[in-house]
C-alpha cells in the first residue's frame, strides 16, 4: 500500500512495488491524460512532474514517487505556468492527433518553471526527449515562446 500525492491530493494505491507510475495513474486511478508511447523513456508521452521536475513515468517505479509531489496533466492547469502553457498551445493550435501533447505540455511547463525566458537551445534541451509523430515541433517551439513572453505569435506563414 502506497500513499501518493497526486495533484495535491493524497491517494492510496495497492500495487506492486515495481509498477511504473504511468500504469498506476492510468490503469489504477483512471488519470488517462498521461500517455503510454514506448515504455522506455524514449518518447516522453508519459511525462509527469515529480516535485516540479519532468520525469518519464513509464520507467519510474511507484516506490520512486512515494513522498514526492506528483503533478499530471490533469493538475497542471492549476499552476500559473501550466495554465499559460496550455493557453499558448490552444492559441497556436499545436496539436494534431494530440497524443503526445500532454507530455509535451508537461515538459514545456517544467522548462518554463526553471527558465522563464528559455533560449532556442534551452527549448532544444528540454523538449527533444518528447517525440511527436505528427511533427508539430515548429509549433511547440512557437507555443513555448508565446507562453514565455506572453506575446501572441501566429502560426501562419501562409502567403
Amino acid at each position: 500500500m502506497f500513499v501518493l500525492s497526486i495533484n495535491g491530493n493524497d491517494t492510496q494505491v495497492d500495487v506492486p512495488d515495481d509498477m511504473p507510475l504511468l500504469w498506476v495513474l492510468r490503469d489504477v486511478l483512471g488519470l488517462n491524460g498521461t500517455k503510454f508511447g514506448c515504455g522506455m523513456a524514449q518518447c516522453g508521452a508519459c511525462t509527469v512532474h515529480l516535485d516540479g521536475r519532468a520525469v518519464r513515468s513509464c520507467v519510474l517505479p511507484v516506490t520512486g514517487a512515494v513522498g514526492k509531489k506528483i503533478t499530471t496533466i490533469e493538475g497542471i492547469g492549476a499552476t500559473d505556468i501550466g495554465k499559460r502553457v496550455q493557453q499558448a498551445w490552444l492559441g497556436i493550435e499545436v496539436a494534431q492527433c494530440g497524443y503526445c501533447q500532454t507530455g509535451q505540455i508537461m515538459s514545456a511547463t517544467a522548462l518554463l518553471a526553471e527558465k522563464a525566458q528559455p533560449t532556442d537551445a534551452d527549448i532544444d534541451a528540454a523538449m527533444s526527449g518528447n517525440l511527436c509523430r505528427c511533427g508539430t515541433y515548429a509549433r511547440i517551439r512557437a507555443a513555448i515562446k508565446q507562453a514565455a513572453t506572453g506575446q501572441i505569435s501566429l502560426p501562419q506563414t501562409v502567403a
Binding site: 523513456a41 524514449q42 516522453g44 515529480l50 521536475r53 519532468a54 520525469v55 518519464r56 520507467v59 519510474l60 520512486g64 532544444d124 534541451a125 528540454a126 527533444s128 526527449g129
Partner: peptide, 22 residues
Amino acid sequence: GEQLFVGACAGCHLDSGQGRQT
C-alpha cells in the same frame, strides 16, 4: 553529441547528468 544526448538520453539521465528518476 549534445543534440543526440538531449534527444535520446536526457529522458533518463537529465541534461545535467544527475539522473532524472533514479
